[in-house]
Amino acid sequence: MEIREDILEIAERWRDDGREVALATVVSTWGSAPRPTGSRLVIDAQGNFEGSVSGGCVEGAVITEAMDVISSGKPELLEFGVADENAWELGLSCGGQIRVYVEKVA
């Protein structure tokens, strides 16, 4: 864990190390979203990651998508809403909604 989190610097460093990298960025939020617009996650092809786009609720799904984006090279816009009563349903327990843009650092 890095004390000083600068996701874009980490992304550049990982790329320079020859790793395949994707960036996930919160582009919009509604309601009480846990992390503000512009929050980021950097992910590599092995699923290693730094940063956050929520309080931990949807990172797992974003990481899985990011690994697909790394192999396809095609950006994706993901949307996450309110979680329902089913505890295993993916979503934000805080009642907010977020959209996350996932792109490969080519």
Binding site: E12, R15, V105, A106
Partner: peptide, 14 residues
Amino acid sequence: MNLQLLKAINENRA
């Protein structure tokens, strides 16, 4: 995003 763009953002911020 290509790597040049990422480096340009980081360089400008630095």
